[in-house]
């Protein structure tokens, strides 16, 4: 936190401004995620982690030891579907909250070509046309929404197996496994890129702010817009 972000009474002007507003410059910092954005992100994250830690020991005995975190496998089995409901509800709120900002703009799909993705991961991409969210982040968002739908639909069947025909149960078990495997792989990279690989990014999800240098490096078009350099 820079000194400039405190007013004369010591109040943190960036955080107070970030309660309800984002994409603004305050005290030398840029507010990237307002309070509601951060809440909803971590509501999804926390409920997902509970689902993950209660689901993994049920998925394979390789992770039975995790059940101890919750006091045993029976409690995991009880908690998992309820945590899943909260995950689905959080995901729905996240969808309403962010869907508008996450729609792909013309030309953005080319960013998702293997070549461009590789150059992004190799830090060779110049990013000049990247706005507030890059197409990879948008794809991550839509995958998360899709995963929530798939996990909820198959999870409800697995919760009440006696109410569904055999073939629906089998397909649901397979869909639940497949969706969760792909989603966990995605989330592993999401967490890695948002923490270890990109210093300052996690900060935007906790305090809500980023530095100007961070904005210019990762989201140059958004930086120009926030700074009033471009419409």
């Amino acid at each position: 936190m820079s000194v400039a972000s405190l007013d004369t009474h010591g109040a943190d002007v960036a955080v107070t401004a970030g309660r309800d507003r984002e994409d603004i410059v305050v005290g030398g910092e840029i507010v990237r995620h307002r309070r509601s954005s951060r809440f909803i992100h971590f509501a999804v994250a926390a409920t997902f982690i509970v689902c993950l830690l209660t689901g993994l020991p049920i998925w394979t005995p390789f992770f039975t030891w995790m059940a101890t975190l919750f006091g045993g496998l029976s409690f995991c089995r009880w908690l998992h579907p309820w945590a899943g409901i909260f995950f689905a509800v959080s995901s729905l709120v996240m969808f309403v909250h962010w869907a508008g900002q996450m729609t792909f703009e013309p030309g953005e799909k080319s960013w998702l070509s293997p070549k461009r993705l590789m150059s992004y991961l190799e830090y060779r991409d110049d990013n000049t046309d990247v706005g507030k969210y890059n197409p990879g982040q948008k794809l991550q968002f839509w995958c998360a929404i899709l995963a929530a739908v798939g996990l909820l639909a198959s999870g409800v069947v697995m919760w009440f197996p006696a109410s569904f025909p055999q073939i629906v149960r089998e397909l649901s078990i397979l869909l639940h496994s497949l969706t969760f495997i792909l989603f966990v792989m995605l989330i592993t990279w999401h967490v890695y890129l948002g923490t270890a690989a990109e210093p300052g990014t996690f900060h935007s999800m906790t305090r809500g702010t980023v530095t100007k240098a961070w904005a210019r490096l990762h989201h140059p078009k958004w930086y120009r817009q926030v700074m009033g350099l471009e419409k």
Binding site: Y123, V184, T188, W189, A196, E198, R216, L217
Partner: peptide
């Protein structure tokens, strides 16, 4: 199981190869 651990090891490999993206 292999895929999930693969993704995890992949992030470590990435970090070892490219490090941080930082101004």
């Amino acid at each position: 199981l292999i895929a999930i651990f693969g993704a995890l090891i992949g992030t470590v490999g990435h970090y070892f190869t490219y490090g941080k993206k930082e101004y």
